[in-house]
């Protein structure tokens, strides 16, 4: 599955979660998105193959939960709150395996239980790997969500009775940081957005 679907799916999920969980920050969503492509380090194999190096057997563990967890652990050490970072990266790569399990192959698939079990499979066989459908669906949902969040962020800035912290939260749920700076400014009441 392409990286548009892999990157946008956790973004959509986290943005929806952010409406309930105020603590979830955009910088944390960025970590979930990073985690979502970690297992695809195996894509390096295409590059190595082009150079005449066959590394498929060596590089395969990166596309397994245990391998991805080890990589996530290493990467999380490069962040201030490493335990939190590890958790977020783990959520990210879990979405990756969930999406990849939808793929269709003639046979085989992922070895999710590696190194404890070499069973290849775990595919639901719903979508061909080169399909545009996941990318199109995620782009449409992400665009709708972004549009709704933008609208709600603008409305939040205009509603006078909204507290400072609430306004900051609503605008923070929109991805552009510059909105945060303007969020704390009280604006004159507008009748347009009250509905």
């Amino acid at each position: 599955m392409d990286w548009i679907a892999h990157v946008l799916t956790p973004w959509i999920g986290c943005k929806l979660l952010q409406l309930k969980l105020r603590k979830l920050m955009d910088r944390e969503i960025a970590l979930v998105m990073l985690g979502a492509i970690l297992p695809d380090i195996v894509a390096l194999n295409y590059l190595l193959q082009a150079l005449g190096i066959g590394a498929e057997r060596f590089i395969m563990p990166f596309h397994t939960p245990v391998g991805a967890a080890l990589v996530a652990a290493m990467i999380s050490l490069m962040f201030p709150k490493w335990k939190r970072a590890f958790f977020l990266l783990t959520v990210g790569f879990a979405t990756h395996f969930a999406l990849d399990s939808l793929l269709l192959h003639a046979d085989g698939g992922m070895a999710l239980l590696f190194p404890f079990n070499w069973r290849w499979g775990f595919q639901l066989g719903l979508i061909p790997p080169d399909s545009w459908i996941p990318a199109i669906i995620t782009i449409i949902i992400a665009a709708c969500l972004l549009s709704a969040l933008t609208k709600s962020a603008i409305c939040a800035l205009r509603i006078p009775h909204l507290t400072k912290s609430r306004a900051a939260h609503v605008s923070a749920s929109f991805c552009v940081p510059s909105f945060r700076k303007t969020a704390n400014r009280r604006r004159a009441p507008s009748t347009e957005c009250r509905d």
Binding site: D2, W3, V7, A30, Y46, D130, W132, C175
Partner: peptide, 27 residues
Amino acid sequence: YERMSYFMEFCRSLVGAALLAFFFLMY
């Protein structure tokens, strides 16, 4: 996998990588 379709999957992945890089480096 049609030749173009296979190639386009890589192209879409490049767009996804750019999207991730933009979003990640923003924060």
